[in-house]
């Protein structure tokens, strides 16, 4: 299962910040960090910390070249379909955050050279809030957001 190639591959997207944070917390041995699940990012309670843990920087710019496809109103907060695509050149990673969730970082995708910057998944959202997309290209970090309303349903079906 564990692919050795992956360790090399992930290098570009793993964050220096995450290395320091996770290793500093004594969670994992520093040499293993690059291939491991980004504990610091996924456990973070704030969007800013999570983004920094993934990208290694808190310098990001909003970009109109990121497209987030998500419903205006979530039919069911337990299953919110989200797609993120970008026309920015040289995208190496895409992350999806749900700003209002207790742990905002939901998914992070490290892309290979031939991989198209267009990913889809389904996420849980506890309440109304922004879905944030973070796109890394080279050493630049771009973001975009879209609000999704989450409300408690009556019956459903």
């Amino acid at each position: 299962m564990i692919d050795v190639k992956r360790r090399v591959f992930l290098k570009g997207s793993a964050a220096a910040g995450a290395v320091v944070a996770a290793a500093g917390a004594g969670l994992i041995a520093p040499q293993a960090v690059l291939a491991e699940w980004n504990e610091a990012a996924f456990r973070s309670k704030s969007v800013a910390d999570a983004v920094k843990a993934v990208t290694g920087t808190d310098a990001s710019v909003e970009s109109a070249d990121i497209k987030i496809k998500a419903p205006e109103i979530a039919e069911n907060g337990a299953v919110v379909p989200v797609s993120v695509s970008s026309s920015i050149a040289g995208v190496t990673a895409i992350s999806i955050l749900a700003a209002s969730n207790p742990s905002p970082m939901v998914a992070s995708f490290a892309l290979g050279e031939t991989t198209v910057a267009d990913v889809s998944t389904r996420i849980k959202m506890g309440k109304t809030g922004d879905v944030i997309a973070v796109v890394q290209a080279g050493d630049k970090v771009y973001t975009a957001k879209k609000e999704v309303k989450v409300t408690i349903g009556g019956c459903g079906g």
């Binding site: 692919d3 190639k5 992956r6 591959f9 992930l10 699940w37 980004n38 996924f42 337990a78 299953v79 919110v80 379909p81 797609s83 749900a98 969730n101 742990s103 970082m105 939901v106 998914a107 992070s108 995708f109 490290a110 892309l111 290979g112 031939t114 991989t115 198209v116 267009d118 990913v119 889809s120 998944t121 389904r122 996420i123 849980k124």
Partner: peptide, 25 residues
């Protein structure tokens, strides 16, 4: 045999999770 995507998830991804990606070639 070549890795095209490595995805990291939290428990914030829905039950019975879905993933879609695409690559050139």
């Amino acid at each position: 045999g070549k890795v095209v995507i490595t995805t990291s998830w939290s428990g914030g991804v829905s039950k019975d999770p879905y993933l879609s990606f695409s690559f050139k070639g």
